[in-house]
């Protein structure tokens, strides 16, 4: 076996292990799972936000993918807050459990807005600009009520 192949194999092995570990962690730990999901949404929002701001060039495929990621994350996001997962290192506000319906409605709105914006995101920069704000406004309106900053 060539040294290069060994390196490749070990990289594969390590990343496979890491993936398994992170999967296992997210399944047992709803706090981690939802934080990962939010990080992905943040990255997807950033990808589009930078295009809207003109910091990076518009890329139709990337914008469409990012908007799809947000929609997919929103779909099951409310399920990541089972009873009892309000403890520990979480910034989830008690309001999530006090007002489950309101929280579900808020995540459903993000899902609907992102779903409706996928086509526009993949059309051209002007269409992305026109739909991005509406989707993005969900971030702060939800964080206004359902998140408590801890640091």
């Amino acid at each position: 076996m060539k040294l290069q192949n060994v390196t490749r194999l070990s990289v594969l092995a390590v990343s496979a292990t890491l993936m398994t570990v992170s999967l296992a962690v997210s399944q047992d730990d709803p706090v981690k799972a939802r934080q990962e999901s939010m990080k992905q949404v943040g990255a997807a929002t950033g990808a589009m936000g930078k295009m809207v701001k003109g910091e990076i060039d518009y890329d139709a495929a990337a914008a469409e993918k990012a908007m799809t990621q947000i929609r997919d994350a929103a779909e099951k996001f409310a399920d990541k807050f089972p009873e009892g997962s309000d403890q520990g290192k979480t910034e989830a506000a008690p309001k999530i459990w006090e007002d489950k319906e309101g929280f579900k409605t808020a995540t459903a709105k993000l899902h609907k807005d992102a779903d409706g914006a996928i086509a526009a995101a993949g059309t051209d920069l002007d269409s992305l600009k026109a739909s991005f704000g509406k989707v993005a406004s969900n971030c702060k309106s939800c964080h206004e009520t359902y998140r408590v900053k801890k640091n």
């Binding site: 929002t45 993005a136 971030c139």
Partner: peptide, 23 residues
């Protein structure tokens, strides 16, 4: 300045809590 204008932090997290209204 952009966070005050848009509500987004540099990592595209959003401002929240009572800062939403301030922003």
């Amino acid at each position: 300045a952009y966070s005050l204008e848009s509500g987004f932090t540099p990592s595209y997290d959003s401002l929240g809590g009572s800062m939403t209204s301030v922003q």
